[in-house]
Amino acid sequence: MADRLTREEVEHVAKLARVEISDDEMEKYQVELKQILDEVMKINDVVLYDDEYMIAPWSVDSELRKDEVGDMLDAKDVLENVPRHSGNYIEVPVVLGE
């Protein structure tokens, strides 16, 4: 088995995560992600008690909220931390392919 992921595999992950990586990092991730995968694959050998799974250590079921309106933000508050806006709209560079 190869000891590293291909560039394409790492590029795919970087694209999914929207993390831009340099050539050095590419090298590093090709090896490191493979190492982690090898480590992770070992859990296939773990023998389970049963088929039950735990998403989180919840001690309660979801309590459903009444359909009643609560406080909302003014558009001014919405824009408080927004890097770019136009009027009350939040602005981003144009999104193509719509």
Partner: peptide
């Protein structure tokens, strides 16, 4: 792996 991890977590 994720699903298996959730099962081991339960165990």
């Amino acid at each position: 792996y994720y699903n298996k991890a959730l099962k081991i977590r339960d165990d």
